[in-house]
Amino acid sequence: MNARHLDHVNLRIPADGADAARTFYGEQLGFGIEDTLHETGEKPFLDVRLSATAVVHLWPTDEFDAPTATNFDHFCVVVEEPIDTVRSRLDEVGVEIDDELAAPRGATGEAASLYVVDPFGYRIELKTRV
């Protein structure tokens, strides 16, 4: 089997978390939110559009348990902007930086990264392109 890329990630969020998800992922991080089908009840999750080929599905559920260090560390999103631009945007919109690494390893090599935590406890690495 020859894998091409990661298509999507599924994350559970609290049943009442859709508005917080829209604010954090859409307004603060600036990713596209595709939730029309969720709002009409045709789809049980919201899509956070990262690129033409990658999304994060956010599933509101009553059975939500926040991630812990024993069952989840982070997922990584490669961003086009330089790390200083990302840092400035996060500061402008009030998103706290959880950690910063000069050159962590990943699938595309080493590049500067900032880590943030979403309203549900998921840690996200925002990594510049190599």
Rank of each mutant, 00 (worst) to 15 (best):
D19S: 14
E42D: 09
E63V: 02
G32E: 15
A18Y: 02
P60W: 11
T23Y: 05
E39D: 00
Q28S: 15
S51F: 08
L58T: 14
R12E: 09
L37H: 08
Y25A: 12
T23V: 06
G26K: 02
A52K: 13
L46S: 04
A54K: 09
F31I: 04
T53F: 13
Q28D: 15
F72T: 01
T53E: 11
F31W: 07
F24L: 10
D19Y: 10
F64V: 02
F64C: 03
D19P: 06
V48I: 15
D19T: 12
L50D: 03
P14M: 08
L46W: 01
S51H: 01
G17K: 15
S51I: 06
A20Q: 14
K43A: 13
H74K: 01
P44Y: 06
L50N: 01
L46F: 02
N10C: 05
P60F: 12
A15F: 10
K43V: 15
F45W: 15
A20N: 14
A52N: 10
R22L: 00
D65H: 14
N71C: 06
D35C: 10
P67R: 04
V55N: 11
F45C: 07
T23N: 11
L37D: 15
A18N: 02
E42F: 00
E34W: 00
I33L: 11
N10S: 09
F75W: 14
V48T: 10
P44H: 07
G30D: 01
A20W: 09
C76K: 12
Y25M: 13
E63W: 05
Q28G: 14
P14I: 07
F45P: 00
L11H: 01
C76V: 09
F24R: 12
F64T: 06
F31H: 02
A21G: 09
A54Q: 13
D65Q: 15
A52P: 10
L11S: 06
F75H: 08
T70I: 05
F72W: 04
P60N: 14
F75I: 11
F31R: 03
N10Y: 01
H38G: 03
I13L: 10
H74A: 01
E34T: 01
E34K: 02
L11A: 03
T70N: 04
H57R: 09
C76G: 14
D62E: 13
P60Q: 11
N71Y: 01
A20E: 13
E34A: 03
L50M: 12
R22T: 01
D16C: 09
G17R: 11
A15I: 11
E34D: 06
F75R: 00
Y25G: 12
G41F: 03
L37N: 14
G30R: 04
A54S: 13
F64G: 03
G41I: 02
D35Y: 03
E39H: 07
H8C: 03
A54G: 02
D16N: 11
A15W: 08
A21N: 12
